[in-house]
Lab assay of single mutants.
Amino acid sequence: EKTLKIVADSEEEAEALAKELAEKYNLEVTIERNPEEEGKYVITIKIKP
């Protein structure tokens, strides 16, 4: 299993990107607040072998 993390500037941007990735590529995608940067969100994508 591989994990890729993407940082987005807004929750709306994160949700839109996560939804597109999940639907288009059938990936497991989660969104959470970035504890290191206020106002940023981390999109985590898990790629199963």
Rank of each mutant, 00 (worst) to 15 (best):
I43Q: 00
I6E: 02
E11M: 08
K2V: 15
E28C: 09
E38M: 09
E32D: 10
E36N: 12
E28W: 05
I47R: 04
P49G: 12
I47C: 15
E28P: 14
E23M: 10
N34Y: 13
E38Q: 09
V7R: 08
V29K: 00
K19I: 07
Y25Q: 04
E23Y: 11
I47F: 13
K48R: 11
E38L: 12
K46F: 15
L4N: 08
E36Y: 09
K24N: 14
E13C: 14
A16T: 08
N34P: 10
A18N: 01
K24R: 10
E15V: 10
I31G: 00
R33A: 11
A18E: 02
I43D: 00
E12V: 07
L27E: 12
A22V: 15
T44E: 05
P35I: 10
T44M: 06
I31N: 00
E38D: 11
P35R: 08
K24M: 13
A14N: 00
K19S: 09
K5C: 15
V7S: 13
K24D: 12
S10E: 01
N26Y: 07
K48C: 10
I45Q: 01
D9K: 04
R33W: 04
E38F: 11
I43A: 01
K46Q: 09
E38Y: 10
I45G: 09
V29T: 07
R33K: 11
Y25V: 03
E15I: 12
E28G: 04
E11G: 05
N26M: 07
K46E: 09
T44K: 03
L21K: 01
E15L: 12
L27Y: 15
A18Q: 05
E20V: 14
A14K: 01
E11F: 10
A16S: 07
K2S: 15
E38V: 08
R33E: 09
E37W: 12
K40F: 04
R33I: 10
A16I: 06
K40V: 05
A18C: 10
P35N: 07
T30H: 07
E15P: 00
K2E: 15
I43W: 01
N26I: 04
I43R: 00
K2G: 15
E1R: 02
E12D: 09
L21R: 00
A18K: 09
E13H: 12
E1H: 08
V7D: 14
E32W: 04
I45C: 08
N34D: 13
N26L: 05
E32T: 08
K5Q: 15
L21I: 12
K2C: 15
L17S: 01
E15D: 07
A22E: 10
E23D: 07
Y25W: 06
R33G: 05
A18H: 03
V42Q: 02
K40L: 05
G39S: 08
V7Y: 15
A14S: 02
E32L: 03
N26T: 05
E11W: 13
E23S: 11
S10P: 00
V42H: 02
G39Y: 04
V7P: 14
A18V: 13
E36Q: 08
A18W: 06
T30F: 08
L4K: 06
I47M: 05
Y25H: 08
G39L: 03
E23V: 11
E1D: 13
E37D: 08
R33F: 11
L4Y: 15
L27K: 08
P49I: 11
T44N: 04
V7C: 15
E11T: 04
I47K: 04
T3M: 03
T3W: 14
V7H: 15
P35H: 09
A14G: 02
A16R: 12
E12S: 09
K48Y: 14
K24W: 12
V42L: 05
E28L: 05
V7G: 10
K19R: 10
L27N: 10
P35S: 12
V29E: 00
E37A: 09
E13S: 07
L4W: 15
L4E: 12
K19H: 04
E23K: 12
E13A: 10
L4F: 15
E1C: 12
I47L: 13
V29N: 00
S10V: 01
I31Y: 03
T3Q: 04
E23R: 12
L27H: 13
A22N: 14
A16N: 09
